[in-house]
């Protein structure tokens, strides 16, 4: 309860500061849109040369991409901690965090949130509706609820992985570039994993389970029954990975060595 109240306090504060720089906000949303457009263009160009991609049609692939955008938008709004090492470890900002009576990770999530990324969810849903429409998909009463469940699961998967990577900074003192590159890998959950070889498929399912952010849950709405099991695993994997990441975080904070002045 306390945490929810605090959350809204921070959101209110965030709105106030962001509204002062409205032009920035538009540029940021625009560059997000551009990024999404580039990915759609890629899909369109590729399908200019083929009709099926590992057995999936163009609209199915577009639908998966649309779905992916929603948990990804939530993730980038709240777990945008790619600069955790520089900002909190090297500059020692974690000192400040640790003198406050709220869980340290939660405080960082609050401080780093970028709510404008939520706009991506709108794009995602629009893309899904467009693709679902051309595929003639029907919406049943349970779909919105499952959609929400899968989206949250996907967000937790993403969040969990990135928190774990951020935790590396507690153990290794050198800067690593894993974080930005992980964004690249994350993109492979957007494509049907059956086009990859079995090792990569395994990795994307169990090690860095990005497939649970895109193709697996989306397969449910596309009616691909052979994937249903994986679709329903989405929230489970999300909770497991996120839970583990919190445990690692908690033990990492104990090893925080501060920044020398």
């Amino acid at each position: 309860m306390f945490y929810i109240r605090i959350f809204f306090q921070y959101v209110a504060q965030y709105m106030k500061t962001r509204m002062q720089y409205r032009a920035d906000l538009f540029v940021e949303i625009f560059s997000d849109l551009l990024f999404q457009a580039v990915n759609l263009i890629f899909i369109l160009v590729v399908f200019g040369h083929t009709n099926l991609l590992g057995g999936w049609t163009r609209d199915e692939i577009i639908f998966i991409y649309g779905f992916f955008l929603v948990p990804y938008a939530l993730f980038s709004s709240f777990f945008n901690i790619w600069d955790f090492n520089e900002r909190y470890i090297v500059k020692g900002e974690l000192d400040r965090i640790l003198t406050r009576p709220i869980h340290s990770l939660f405080q960082i999530v609050l401080e780093r949130m970028e709510l404008e990324s939520l706009f991506g969810a709108v794009t995602g849903i629009a893309v899904m509706f467009y693709a679902g429409n051309s595929l003639g998909l029907k919406l049943s009463w349970a779909d919105p609820f499952l959609f929400l469940l899968f989206v949250l699961g996907g967000m937790l998967v993403y969040g969990g992985i990135f928190i774990m990577i951020a935790c590396i900074s507690f153990w290794a003192d050198a800067r690593t570039s894993i974080m930005p590159m992980m964004y690249n890998i994350g993109n492979y959950g957007r494509y049907p994993v059956d086009i990859y070889n079995s090792v990569i498929r395994f990795v994307l399912t169990w090690v860095l389970p990005f497939a649970f952010v895109g193709v697996y849950p989306a397969a449910f709405f596309l009616g691909k029954e052979e994937w249903f099991l994986y679709s329903f695993l989405t929230p489970v994997i999300g909770i497991v990975f996120f839970g583990i990441s919190i445990l690692i975080w908690n033990s990492g904070v104990k090893r925080y060595r501060g920044a020398g002045n």
């Binding site: 800067r175 570039s177 590159m181 494509y191």
Partner: peptide
């Protein structure tokens, strides 16, 4: 230095993913 141990690995994964994508295409 850690950039390079991980960087090569991750670029390889990157290349791998596009390789499979193109093979499927």
């Amino acid at each position: 230095r850690t950039n390079y141990y991980t960087g090569i690995l991750i670029y390889s994964i990157n290349i791998g993913a596009y390789y499979f994508l193109w093979s499927a295409i």
